[in-house]
Design a protein around this nucleic acid. Structure first.
Length: 122
DNA sequence: ACCATGACTAGAA
DNA sequence: CTTCTAGCCATGG
């Protein structure tokens, strides 16, 4: 099992794949959401949506904090809600930002979708 | 270098 | 419709 001790791979490199993910994730405007695959594509590794999700594993441990609650899977399902401190906080935050969530799923996902490739364009 | 893991995704059965 | 398979690639042991 991973140690979850630090987000950085070895502590030597300040920059890593995670950092890139966090950087993009922090660009997500309030009230907007995106998918793992979109972020992955933004970084160039469009096929590594898993890495993005995994990177989010330390989203709450990095500084500044990363709005991981705005990152969901491609169908707008809150697949990572169980990784939040209290499960359900994710949904709560999204609702707080004006995003409607029903049964762990974002309503009008496409309407709130924010494309990092288009906006950031790494 | 190899194997296991993971908050994904697309396509097949 | 649901369930499974396999590709994906970075990180840690």
């Amino acid at each position: 099992m991973p140690k979850l001790r630090s987000v950085k791979p070895s502590g030597k490199n300040d920059e890593s794949f995670f950092e890139l993910v966090y950087e993009v994730a922090r660009q997500i405007p309030k009230g907007k959401v995106t998918s793992y695959g979109a972020i992955a594509a933004c970084l160039g590794t469009k096929s590594s949506a898993r890495m993005v999700g995994w990177a989010m594993n330390g989203a709450g441990k990095v500084k500044p904090k990363v709005p991981a609650h705005r990152v969901v899977n491609r169908i707008g399902l809150l697949s990572g809600k169980h990784h939040f401190s209290p499960p359900g906080n994710m949904e709560k935050l999204l609702k707080k930002e004006g995003i409607k969530v029903k049964n762990d799923k974002i309503i009008d996902f496409e309407k709130h979708f924010w494309d990092p490739v288009k906006e950031v364009g790494f």
